[in-house]
Measured scan of single mutants.
Amino acid sequence: WIARINAAVRAYGLNYSTFINGLKKAGIELDRKILADMAVRDPQAFEQVVNKVKEALQV
Protein backbone atom coordinates (compact mmCIF):
# COMPACT_ATOMS: atom_id res chain seq x y z
CA TRP A 1 0.00 0.00 0.00
CA ILE A 2 2.78 2.37 0.87
CA ALA A 3 4.46 1.92 -2.51
CA ARG A 4 1.20 2.61 -4.34
CA ILE A 5 0.46 5.71 -2.31
CA ASN A 6 4.01 6.97 -2.72
CA ALA A 7 3.87 6.52 -6.50
CA ALA A 8 0.50 8.27 -6.68
CA VAL A 9 1.45 11.29 -4.56
CA ARG A 10 4.76 11.80 -6.36
CA ALA A 11 2.71 12.72 -9.44
CA TYR A 12 1.45 15.68 -7.37
CA GLY A 13 4.90 16.74 -6.13
CA LEU A 14 4.72 15.16 -2.67
CA ASN A 15 6.36 12.16 -1.09
CA TYR A 16 4.76 9.53 1.13
CA SER A 17 5.84 10.88 4.52
CA THR A 18 4.85 14.46 3.68
CA PHE A 19 1.49 13.23 2.41
CA ILE A 20 0.77 11.20 5.56
CA ASN A 21 1.77 14.18 7.73
CA GLY A 22 -0.56 16.38 5.69
CA LEU A 23 -3.42 13.92 6.12
CA LYS A 24 -3.10 14.23 9.88
CA LYS A 25 -2.92 18.03 9.74
CA ALA A 26 -5.99 18.13 7.47
CA GLY A 27 -7.92 15.82 9.81
CA ILE A 28 -8.48 13.22 7.10
CA GLU A 29 -8.83 9.78 8.63
CA LEU A 30 -8.52 7.32 5.76
CA ASP A 31 -6.36 4.26 6.22
CA ARG A 32 -3.56 3.33 3.85
CA LYS A 33 -5.48 0.48 2.25
CA ILE A 34 -8.34 2.81 1.28
CA LEU A 35 -5.94 5.48 0.02
CA ALA A 36 -4.04 2.99 -2.16
CA ASP A 37 -7.29 1.63 -3.57
CA MET A 38 -8.61 5.14 -4.20
CA ALA A 39 -5.43 6.12 -6.06
CA VAL A 40 -5.99 3.26 -8.52
CA ARG A 41 -9.78 3.05 -8.79
CA ASP A 42 -10.88 6.66 -8.26
CA PRO A 43 -8.06 9.05 -9.21
CA GLN A 44 -10.37 12.08 -9.16
CA ALA A 45 -11.30 11.51 -5.52
CA PHE A 46 -7.65 10.85 -4.70
CA GLU A 47 -6.72 14.16 -6.34
CA GLN A 48 -9.24 15.94 -4.11
CA VAL A 49 -7.63 14.36 -1.04
CA VAL A 50 -4.18 15.43 -2.28
CA ASN A 51 -5.44 18.99 -2.81
CA LYS A 52 -6.81 19.10 0.77
CA VAL A 53 -3.47 17.82 2.04
CA LYS A 54 -1.61 20.49 0.08
CA GLU A 55 -3.90 23.15 1.58
CA ALA A 56 -3.17 21.83 5.08
CA LEU A 57 0.56 21.84 4.36
CA GLN A 58 0.34 25.20 2.59
CA VAL A 59 2.28 23.84 -0.41
Rank of each mutant, 00 (worst) to 15 (best):
N21C: 14
L14Q: 01
G22L: 03
L57C: 07
I34G: 10
N6D: 15
W1G: 15
V59F: 13
G13A: 05
G13C: 11
G13L: 02
K25F: 09
F46T: 00
K33M: 12
P43N: 06
A3W: 04
K25E: 13
Q58I: 09
A11C: 09
E47L: 12
Y16V: 04
V53N: 00
L57F: 04
K24L: 12
R4W: 06
Q58N: 09
A11T: 12
V59T: 13
D37N: 12
I28D: 02
E55S: 13
S17V: 07
E47N: 05
R32G: 15
V50N: 00
I20D: 08
N15Q: 05
R32W: 10
Y16G: 10
A56T: 09
E29V: 13
A7G: 04
T18R: 13
D37F: 11
V9I: 06
K33Y: 08
I34K: 10
L30R: 08
G22Q: 03
G27I: 06
E29W: 07
A3K: 15
G22H: 03
A45G: 11
I5R: 00
R32P: 15
A3F: 02
S17C: 15
N15I: 08
G27V: 06
A36V: 07
E29S: 12
A56Y: 05
E47D: 06
I20K: 09
K24C: 15
W1L: 15
K54T: 07
E29P: 14
V59D: 11
R10I: 05
L30K: 08
A3C: 15
R41A: 13
A56C: 09
N15R: 04
I20Y: 04
V49C: 07
K54L: 10
A26E: 04
N51V: 11
V53H: 00
R10G: 12
K25G: 08
N15W: 05
A45H: 10
K52S: 06
A11L: 09
I5G: 00
F19L: 04
V9E: 00
I5A: 01
A7W: 04
V50Y: 02
K33A: 05
A56D: 04
A3P: 04
R4H: 05
K24M: 07
V40D: 13
V9K: 00
V40T: 14
L14P: 00
Q58Y: 08
E47C: 08
L35K: 01
A3V: 05
Q44V: 12
V49M: 09
G22W: 03
N6Q: 05
Q58S: 10
L35S: 02
D37I: 07
I28R: 03
A8T: 03
L30V: 07
A26G: 07
R32Q: 15
W1S: 15
I34E: 08
F19M: 03
K33T: 04
R4Q: 14
E55R: 08
Q48M: 06
L57Q: 05
D37L: 08
V53R: 01
L14E: 02
K25H: 11
V40I: 11
Q58W: 07
L57D: 04
G27Y: 05
E29Q: 09
V59H: 10
N15S: 09
D37V: 08
L14V: 03
A26W: 03
L14K: 00
A3G: 05
G13N: 08
K24N: 08
V49E: 03
G13K: 04
E47T: 07
Q44S: 07
Q58V: 12
I20C: 14
G22D: 01
A3T: 06
I28S: 05
F46S: 00
K25L: 11
K54I: 10
A36R: 02
G22I: 02
V9L: 12
R4I: 15
